[in-house]
């Protein structure tokens, strides 16, 4: 098993309350993703055993959503919203700025495997645009100064 005992326990707890087993798919995927940073075929199998739902149903659901990539990414996943409200306030230039700063293109991961940069659809921070999400945290009202500071902090924490 790649899923840890804690994850399995958490999945069991999270899914227990639902009237039907199949409802456990999203909670289970979420727990698995949090542990691993990816969810692939092997994990679908493990989840399938834990929540007793056919394997293919897990694969079908997982690939429908954007939050369960099959391959793990950098330690910090930077997701920049490129939708309209953010774009009006310079999201595209924010992406270019990050590309320059990190020395990678959108969609890529830095050589030290620290940062992955992707652009995503609206994250519900439209009034605090432009914004980016790094792992689970939102960073809003971004300026060049703020971005520099954030990246520096993350680098030093890593």
């Amino acid at each position: 098993m790649i899923l840890t005992q804690e994850s399995i326990q958490e999945i069991k707890e999270k899914t227990a309350k639902y009237p039907r087993k199949k409802s456990g798919i999203l909670p289970a995927l979420t727990v698995a993703y949090r542990q691993l940073g990816y969810v692939d075929d092997e994990i679908y199998h493990e989840i399938s055993k834990v929540i007793k739902v056919p394997y293919v149903e897990i694969a079908e659901a997982a690939t429908f959503y954007t939050m369960f990539p099959k391959k793990s990414r950098g330690k910090y996943l930077i997701q920049v919203c490129h939708n309209i409200s953010c774009a009006l306030l310079g999201a595209d230039s924010l992406i270019s700025y990050l590309e320059d700063k990190l020395g990678i293109k959108k969609g890529e991961t830095t050589a030290d495997n620290l940062f992955t940069l992707i652009s995503v659809e609206c994250l519900g921070s439209c009034s605090t645009a432009p914004m980016m999400q790094i792992n689970h945290d939102f960073h809003e009202n971004l300026t060049r100064e703020k971005v520099d500071g954030i990246l520096e902090t993350l680098r030093s924490e890593a």
């Binding site: 309350k17 639902y18 039907r20 087993k21 199949k22 409802s23 456990g24 798919i25 999203l26 909670p27 995927l29 979420t30 739902v53 149903e57 079908e60 659901a61 997982a62 429908f64 959503y65 954007t66 939050m67 369960f68 659809e121 609206c122």
Partner: peptide
Amino acid sequence: IVHTGGGAYICGEETALLNSVEGERGM
């Protein structure tokens, strides 16, 4: 129950939302 989605705007549409809670694809 607090149920979290997996990244799909369409799940805001009420019937897709129900499918998503059921563990189906959010269609």
